[in-house]
C-alpha cells in the first residue's frame, strides 16, 4: 500500500471521527445532511458485499467494518437519538436523493466491467459515492452558520478522494496497473464536486474568517 492510499484512508477515517465528535460530544447534527449519510450507508453496503466472498487483509476487513458500522451508527443517531435528532436541519435538507440512487442504478447497469451481482453493485457504489455529497453541499449552501466541525468534516471527506486519485496515478506508474476508467472517472467527478467548497474553505482558513458559502 502506498502513502497516498494510506493518507486517503486515514483522511476518510478522520472525517468520520470529526462527525462522530460533533454528534457524540456536542450532541448535534445541525448542518449535516441525513440524506448524504443514508447514501453512504448504501454505498458501503453495496461495495463491501465482498466481505463475504473475498479476503484481502486484516486492514482491509477492519476498515470496511468500521465504515459500515460508523455510517449506520451516524444515521441511527440522526434519526433516533432523542437529543441529536432534534438538531437535524430537516427543512433545509431538501435534495431529492432518490434521484441519485436511480441514476446510479441505471448507469451501473449500462456501464460496468463485468455483468455479475458483485461487480455491478461495486460499480453502482462508485457512481453513488461520486454524487452522494450533493445533498450535503446543498444543505451547506442554505446554512447561515457553518460550524467548524461541519466544515472540517466536509473538507476531510473531499480530501480523501483527492488522495485516492494520487494513489491511482501512483499505482498506474509504479505498480503497472491497467486503466481503470470506472473508479478513476467516478473519483475525479467526486473530487471535482468539492472544488467550490475547497476554495471557500481554504479562503476562510487563510483569512481566519468563519466559513460561509455564497448562496
Amino acid at each position: 500500500m502506498n502513502l497516498f492510499r494510506l493518507l486517503g484512508d486515514m483522511t476518510h477515517l478522520l472525517s468520520i471521527v470529526v462527525l462522530l465528535l460533533k454528534i457524540r460530544t456536542v450532541k448535534s447534527c445541525a448542518g449535516i445532511s441525513l440524506k448524504t449519510q443514508e447514501l453512504y450507508v448504501i454505498v458501503f453496503l453495496t461495495r463491501y458485499l465482498d466481505l463475504f466472498t473475498k479476503y484481502y487483509s486484516v486492514y482491509n476487513t477492519a476498515m470496511k467494518l468500521v465504515f459500515l458500522g460508523t455510517s449506520i451508527g451516524i444515521v441511527w443517531y440522526m434519526r433516533y437519538h432523542k437529543v441529536v435528532k432534534q438538531t437535524y436541519s430537516k427543512d433545509e435538507d431538501t435534495f431529492k436523493h432518490y434521484f441519485l440512487i436511480l441514476l446510479s442504478i441505471i448507469l451501473a447497469l449500462l456501464i460496468h466491467r463485468a455483468f455479475d451481482v458483485i461487480e455491478v453493485l461495486w460499480t453502482f457504489s462508485l457512481y453513488l459515492e461520486a454524487v452522494a455529497i450533493l445533498p450535503q453541499l446543498v444543505l451547506l449552501q442554505k446554512s447561515r452558520n457553518i460550524d467548524t466541525l461541519t466544515g472540517d468534516y466536509v473538507f476531510l471527506l473531499g480530501a480523501y478522494r483527492a488522495l485516492y486519485i494520487l494513489n491511482w496515478v501512483y499505482r498506474f506508474l509504479m505498480e503497472n496497473h491497467k486503466f481503470r476508467w470506472i473508479p478513476w472517472i467516478s473519483g475525479l467527478v467526486q473530487t471535482a464536486l468539492y472544488a467550490d467548497f475547497f476554495y471557500y474553505y481554504i479562503k476562510s482558513w487563510k483569512n481566519r474568517e468563519k466559513l460561509k458559502l455564497p448562496a
Binding site: H12, Y56, A114, N167, R180
Partner: peptide, 10 residues
C-alpha cells in the same frame, strides 16, 4: 486477466 486490483481498495 480478472486480477482483483482496485477491488482491494476501500
Amino acid at each position: 486477466d480478472e486480477e482483483p486490483e482496485v477491488h482491494d481498495e476501500l
